[in-house]
Design a protein around this nucleic acid. Structure first.
Lengths: 333, 333
DNA sequence: CTGAAAGCGCTAACAA
DNA sequence: TTGTTAGCGCTTTCAG
């Protein structure tokens, strides 16, 4: 059987309270007694039960992280940022994947609420008003990450997807492209939607006609979407493509090259996210860099402030993105 | 304030015990009372505290996952396998990254032990005997994943890194290569070591001279290691390279091509892991496929069996790897 | 079928 | 400075 606080108390010939005091580094314990207790702890290999502490404090140091899919190259970096920050702040992190299924998402929120997590960092794909009110019912700190929404009641840490997309497309337009198509992610995903809007507005502002195709945020989807675009006939073939994320862009490049065309020679391609592989592909992928790690760290900090009651009113943080021009859309002159 | 079991009991006009019975689906509750309680639960939005339950049961349903770095493309898939399995089995998963630091690793084990996790799935870089005995002291189920060791007292789920490496190198030799170098990961990593041994033995068995360089399991490291090899002078330049993992192999390809040589024309390259990018790179990367997802699922199953006490004696599972020939080492004739 | 009561391991007044 | 005593919210005998 594992040693408990009573065992230690007995061994050190003190009360539980005293043992509690020393393991919590309270000052009001005589040096002599403290030593005795410490010795007993060492002796018995005593390790205080977080469960019992949590119950007693009616407060845990666990944070729930709910994200679409850790397997998507963008998320591990984000998760790492969160975990690192959580660790240094003394929290422990729960991981879960929703595959963008709202029901699964809610199930996880429920599960984590039962675990009495101190807070939940949510990377929700589709964030509706109804969902917001459901979440509010849990009465637990939530910070939305990589999803914005002035309209939500929660703290928010994200980048400006709309603006970033607008800039990427504007860049393409600036390079002389008139026929630019957008290979978007799923309609239901908020980020996909924001990026699409940025694309559409950039096109409209330049008096160009937006053309968007919807798919998944994956390499295969990008490949397939691009193939469909390519099959439309010579006249309609774009000179530039804006991918909803890097995976899509990479898949598109594959399709383009397979069709005998070159990137950026025949068709320029630009992605979104700046995942690790964007710096390894051929051609090197031009894309919009999102500070994923920093996003995670910031989200965790925001969460901690919220938990510690540092601030009462909602906070919306928007980190900076950056257009990264590499090879896939033609180098800078 | 959140509703507790007493609130429900009061509202339903029954005792806590009865409420407990219904939330645990015990049979000995009359239909009428059950309904009344259920109504009260719904009414009060009651959600049983896992913390309290855990304390009472002196057993949690949390599993700790300790891995080097979720940011390394191989791990997210593994983690996903574990998480999916954990979820369906009713467990909740803690995530942590050690960066291969044994001290950090131990710190996390300690932390998770305090959290009273039901078990720990450990992907340990360097697994010594001393570490094994330290771990044993925690007296908590541990399954080693992707790390083997007949010599450890723990359950183990892995693939045969040695054999896989041997086969990859033998394949290269079979293709006529005599001068094959190995770009290994860090000496301290067990997997790197096993793979290196497989390489060395394959070379020796063919009366060839092994040449190995050590680095990190990263793209940059592969790039740099390959550059060093290339700088050695024309005579020593290998005709084939075996990368310690895919990232290294990909980095090596970059270095090779940058030096004006071609892959696989001048130098054949083969990697290890079969990460997502191996199927997207140019040339497509030949590599050894590790069933990462399956590894995760199996590890979690093994853990569950252990926790449930299905078996007492140690279990060592070795899953199958598979040599995947794509483009980077020359296509099959 | 239902309730009373003890206890899981720890913390936090309140006394001494 | 140290000990006593209630709980924290739930499960689980043991009676009835």
């Amino acid at each position: 059987m594992k040693a408990t606080i009573v065992d230690v108390a007995r061994a050190a010939n003190v009360s539980k309270a005293t043992v509690s005091r020393v393991i919590n580094n309270k000052t009001n314990v005589s040096e002599e007694v403290r030593k005795r207790v410490l010795a007993a702890i060492e002796e018995l290999q005593f390790r205080p039960s977080a469960v019992a502490r949590n119950l007693s404090n009616s407060m845990t140091n666990m944070i729930g992280l709910i994200m679409p899919d850790i397997t998507n190259p963008f998320f591990p970096v984000l998760a790492r940022g969160i975990e690192d920050a959580a660790h240094t702040m003394g929290y422990t992190l729960f991981l879960s994947n929703t595959d963008n299924d709202p029901d699964v998402e809610l199930e996880y929120v429920r599960k984590m609420a039962e675990q009495q997590v101190a807070g939940i960092i949510l990377i929700s794909s589709s964030f509706t008003e109804q969902r917001a009110s459901e979440l509010l019912d849990f009465n637990i700190p939530i910070v939305l990450c990589d999803r914005s929404g002035e309209e939500t009641p929660f703290d928010t840490v994200t980048i400006d997807h709309y603006k970033a997309a607008y800039e990427a497309v504007a860049y393409l337009i600036g390079k002389g492209h008139r026929n630019i198509c957008h290979l978007s992610g799923p309609v239901s995903a908020q980020t996909a939607d924001f990026r699409k809007k940025g694309y559409v507005d950039a096109m409209n502002d330049a008096n160009l006609t937006p053309v968007v195709s919807y798919g998944m945020f994956s390499y295969e989807s990008g490949y397939q979407q691009m193939n469909e675009v390519l099959e439309k006939g010579t006249g309609d073939i774009p000179t530039a493509v804006f991918g909803g994320n890097d995976l899509i862009a990479l898949g598109a490049i594959h399709a383009i090259e397979k069709s005998g065309r070159s990137v950026p020679g025949d068709i320029a391609v630009i992605g979104f996210d700046d995942i690790l592989f964007a710096q390894m592909s051929k051609p090197l992928l031009s894309t919009v860099n999102i500070p994923a790690y920093q996003l995670g760290v910031t989200a965790m900090k925001t969460m901690n402030d919220r938990i510690k009651g540092v601030r009462a009113k909602k906070k919306s943080i928007v980190l900076d993105h950056k257009l990264i021009i590499r090879e896939s859309c033609g180098r800078e002159e």
